[in-house]
Amino acid sequence: MISLHYFAGLKEQTGVSEEQVDLAGRTVDELWQWAMDKYPDFQTGAARVAVNEEYALPTDVLEAGDVVAFIPPVSGG
């Protein structure tokens, strides 16, 4: 299983902050497709995906036990 985290506006769009999903073996790009299919309101915008707390590429492959997060455009400072 993969632990999937949502933050800020994306969390409000999905209504969940965290869920366990069975997406090992899929790419980050396929994860996006999965999320948009599951959550019709999901606004991908300029969001990025982090795998195990590092920004990931669309071609990166998810592995069981990964901690994955959707990172909307940041606005700290």
Binding site: F7, A8, G9, E12, Q43, G45, A50, Y55, A69, I71, P72, P73, V74, S75, G76, G77
Partner: peptide, 28 residues
Amino acid sequence: AIERIKEIVPIWKKEIWEDGEEWIGDQK
């Protein structure tokens, strides 16, 4: 440092006004 914080650090700001609110970074 402050420029890089605004580029890569996963922190989000929501502004709350008298008549609404918005997550900054979401330009919708």
